[in-house]
Design a protein around this nucleic acid. Structure first.
Length: 856
RNA sequence: GGGUGAUUAGCUCAGUUGGCUAGAGCGCACGAUUCACAUUCGUGAGGUCGCAGGUUCGAGCCCUGCAUCGCCCACCA
């Protein structure tokens, strides 16, 4: 025996992967129906987690399957510079060295982070290989590769030329710790307990005051108006009057604006355009001046208040409240729970600040995307995600593209030193200043939001926009746009998938992919979200080291449905590991019988032969259908049970009585093929151990329908029914093996050796004078030869079964007596019920006879 | 506040045009075993499918309401 007793994944996985890689099987062939998946690029800097394992395993399964059914399948890998994510990690490194970002230029920092990432970049590739992910490594793309930057610049330029890009002072979400702004989507809102202060502002045009309610009294230093609702009777008379801001004694107007909610607080709101998005909008409508109170460091600015200058926000708030109390103009303080934005990395409260940023107008881009999705040009699995994304696209506001971090693609824009409103597009981003038409322009120091480049990933990776002669390396990838399917986590629906559809349509006029499969999150064993801060992140490499890569794959895909979060289950991984070992031992059993591998044609002789061919063929068809519907867990489950149950437990056991080399060979080949997408390593390892000239399993063809006789296969089903009944009845019987007696029963007569082995019987004898327990199997004339007292013990069990059987008969009969059912249900269903009833009546008769014998 | 998902066996979960006695893995009980595999084999126990109504010949699945848990989105100061 050339294979050891148990499968040890770590002994084979690396060499098996090398086999694939050397053979070039993962590269596109250039002919056949294109099937391309672009991998959501993992962060180049860092380790994979189990969620990645799920994602990449699903992609790999799809690609392996489509390759085997003859398509030109490719998985194009990549890695992500992950702008902000990586920057956060690197900034911590800087901190350790006692440095900050301000000690270096943008170029220096970019270079440092590049080296930092480069040193760890290989790890991700190794981890992906350990997962068994068969990707086209030569065409791997890094998100900062020249071709990426070039395309991103083209896109930005096109958007600029078409007026879809603008630079504007807007309220941005600013993290004072990371010193950068964020897109709305990157802000995490949390409920916080705060206070609602009611503060009286004295009127200047008449005696009196107007009371406003605020959660942020310190921002009153920057108030430039009070706003009320135009329909609010309480304040109608005051609209247009001037009031005085306490503490700073600025005169500001009372304006009417529909954005004000009459029912909240006092119905009057202080307007601080510099630090609140709504206030900013009100400010624009009423042409209010803007006073910035809070700096990018999160301190009070000296321009706003000498008194509170350089204090942090909490301190200033306390100070302001104190002074207001001293002036006796706080009318009321309420407890108030409200949502506050936080940095998703460090938890710092996000400050809405005014900054000059680059924005992308979303409206015109979102419309075609919505239309395409609604027209079904992009199909979502699960379908509900399509509706969600449309909802999201309809409510999108303009996209802030600017990030104040050096690790990213520099924004290719320059500002006229003499005229700050004059900006030009230029890609010479390495020059701090450039000359255009005799004027000096200074470069923008900000970089793009990572998702701006990521949103263009499908057409960049496939070189779709590049003008390439067909022979050129990389030109062959063009046929993979639009991608066949985008497989990614449902958490990226908004920030990535929606944007890819928008940008894909914008640049190429085509949707970037035809289908989207969204997997759910892999939670920890207790069902909690995995996160670094909780320390419950599971490294897939540890799981692989313990159980093997295939076991991990089976463990994460089984028992899981699309879009649904689910806890990681070590028990399922163990089940996967055991399955691999089962396959291994199936191979060990069949190996001595194997004829030439790779060209086998099964010649079925016995009933079992016909049956196993039928079972594998049916399984193949059903796996096809499951995989086409992205029902991975069901496909894997079917594969698992067909191989373990049908092949191992029935067919191999049967072949111990009568073996058929050609069928055994085909069964092993076919099992390996069906299992390959789900367990690539162990199947390829076994495949390569067998005799015969043939390609690697990974490049072999998916099984085709073999020749078999459906009647013979059905006969074997009858035989299995009999064996199951024998086992069921004898499991209760005390003592040694039983003997089976039969009357005129051809199936039993022809297969007595087989039945004896499978039923674990002492012997099988033909008899004219039956005795013992008559077995209640429709169509059979068989008895278990047992002593009388044993029969009495068995009586209760029989009675129970008889009762159940009668119960069923009543139910079936009632159903058939119901004219509504007979008239309205499909004929086939009614027919089935009739058949069922006939069978049950037959069973009842047999059970009755069995009991009669005992009672006599 | 809006949206969305979940609720099925002791545990983790499948169950896609409504149709046989609701399934899997793990766990549990009983039994087996030199001859592919104890990472094994055989047998079994265990479920009013969250609750209440409705539609239907027929509902785990469709409709309405309720309850509990989760996730996402959101500029009520």
């Amino acid at each position: 025996m050339s294979l050891p007793k148990t499968y040890e994944p770590s002994n084979y996985e690396p060499t098996t992967y090398a086999l694939w890689e050397v053979s070039g099987v993962f590269k596109p062939k250039g002919k056949g129906q294109p099937y391309g998946i672009v991998m959501p690029p993992p962060n180049a800097n860092g380790n994979l987690h189990v969620g990645h394992a799920l994602s990449f395993d699903l992609e790999d399964m799809l690609v392996r399957y489509h390759r085997m059914i003859g398509e030109d399948a490719v998985l194009i890998p990549g890695s992500d510079h992950a702008g902000f994510e990586t920057w956060v990690v690197y900034e911590k490194e800087l901190q350790k060295q006692g440095k900050t970002r301000f000690d270096y230029s943008r170029e220096e920092l970019y270079g440092q982070v590049w080296d930092f990432v480069e040193a760890r970049r290989g790890d991700v590739g190794l981890q992906l290989r350990a997962l068994g992910v068969g990707a086209d490594w030569e065409n791997s793309v890094f998100t900062l590769d020249t071709k990426v930057i070039a395309t991103v610049y083209e896109t930005f330029h096109k958007l600029w030329e078409e007026g879809l890009i603008y630079r504007g002072e807007r309220i941005v979400n600013y993290c004072t710790h990371h010193q950068t702004s964020f897109a709305d989507i990157e802000v995490v809102h949390k409920e916080e307990k705060g206070k609602l202060w009611h503060i009286a502002y004295p009127l200047l045009d008449k005696v009196g005051e107007i009371v406003v309610a605020t959660t942020r009294p310190e921002t009153m230093l920057g108030d430039t108006a009070i706003a009320v609702h135009p329909n609010d009777e309480r304040y109608k008379d005051m609209i247009g009057m001037q009031v005085q801001v306490p503490l700073v004694h600025r005169e500001i107007p009372i304006v009417a604006d529909e954005a004000v909610d009459m029912s909240f607080g006092t119905g009057a709101v202080k307007v601080t355009p510099a630090h609140d998005p709504t206030d900013f909008e009100i400010g624009k409508r009423h042409d209010l001046s803007v006073v910035e109170v809070i700096t990018t460091e999160g301190k009070i600015s000296p321009e706003a208040s000498q008194q509170f200058a350089h204090q942090d926000i909490a301190q200033a708030r306390a100070g302001v409240v104190n002074m207001l109390e001293a002036e006796e103009i706080i009318r009321k303080v309420e407890n108030h729970v409200h949502n506050v934005g936080h940095c998703y990395k460090c938890g710092t409260t996000i400050e809405p600040l005014i900054k000059d940023q680059w924005f992308l107008r979303i409206g015109e881009l979102a419309k075609p995307a919505i239309k395409s999705i609604e027209a079904g040009e992009v199909k979502f699995v699960p379908a509900s995600k399509g509706k969600l994304v449309v909802q999201y696209l309809k409510n999108l506001r303009d996209w802030n593209l600017s990030r104040q971090i050096p690790w990213g693609i520099p924004i290719p824009a320059f500002q006229n030193e003499a005229d700050h409103s004059d900006w030009v597009f230029d890609t010479r981003v390495d020059d701090e200043t450039i000359e255009v038409n005799g004027k000096t322009y200074r470069r923008e120091e900000d970089t793009f939001d990572t998702w701006f480049s990521s949103s263009q990933w499908p057409y960049i990776v496939t070189n779709h926009l590049q003008d390439m002669p067909s022979g050129m390396p990389g030109a062959s990838l063009k046929r993979f746009y639009p991608n066949s399917v985008m497989e990614t986590g449902h958490d990226l629906l908004d920030r990535w998938v929606a944007r890819m559809i928008m940008m894909g349509l914008y640049r190429t006029g085509k949707v970037p992919f035809e289908e989207v499969y969204m997997h759910g999150m892999v939670l920890d064993e207790k069902g909690q979200k995995m996160s670094k801060s909780k320390g419950n992140v599971l490294n897939p490499m540890e799981v692989i080291a313990k159980y093997g890569s295939d076991a991990l794959r089976l463990g994460v895909i089984m028992n899981r449905s699309a879009g649904q979060n689910q806890a990681f289950s070590p028990a399922t991984v163990v089940a996967g590991r055991n399955f691999c070992n089962k396959l291994w031992n199936i191979a060990r059993f069949i190996e001595p019988h194997v004829e030439k591998f790779g060209t086998s044609k099964p010649e079925a002789k016995s009933l079992a032969d016909h049956w196993v061919l039928a079972r594998l063929d049916t399984a193949r068809k059903d796996i096809d259908s499951f995989l086409k519907q992205y029902r991975f867990a069901e496909a894997a489950d079917l594969m698992y049970h067909t191989i373990w149950g049908d092949v191992a437990d029935w067919y191999l056991e049967a072949s111990k009585t009568e073996s058929n080399r050609s069928v055994l060979t085909w069964v092993l080949e076919t099992s390996l093929k069906l299992a390959h997408p789900f367990a690539p390593f162990v199947t390829e390892t076994i495949w390569s151990t067998m005799e015969g000239d043939r390609p690697l399993l990974a490049e072999s063809a998916w099984p085709k329908k073999p020749e078999y006789d459906i009647i013979a296969a059905g006969e074997f089903d009858r035989l299995c029914d009999l064996v199951s009944e024998i086992r069921f009845v004898s499991s209760d019987l005390p003592g040694a093996k039983q003997a089976l007696l039969y009357g005129s029963d051809v199936l039993v007569a022809d297969n007595s050796e087989l039945i004896k082995r499978l039923g674990n019987l002492k012997e099988i004898k033909s008899t004219e004078q039956p005795q013992g327990l008559r077995l209640a199997v429709p169509g059979r004339e068989v008895w278990l030869d047992v002593e009388e007292d044993v029969m009495y013990e068995h009586q209760t069990k029989l009675e129970l079964r008889l009762a159940e059987c009668r119960d069923r008969i009543v139910r079936l009969q009632t159903r058939l007596d119901n004219s509504g059912y007979v008239d309205k249900a499909p004929k086939a269903v009614v027919e089935q019920t009739r058949e069922e009833l006939k069978e049950q009546i037959e069973l009842e008769r047999r059970l009755g006879k069995e009991l009669d014998v005992i009672e006599d």
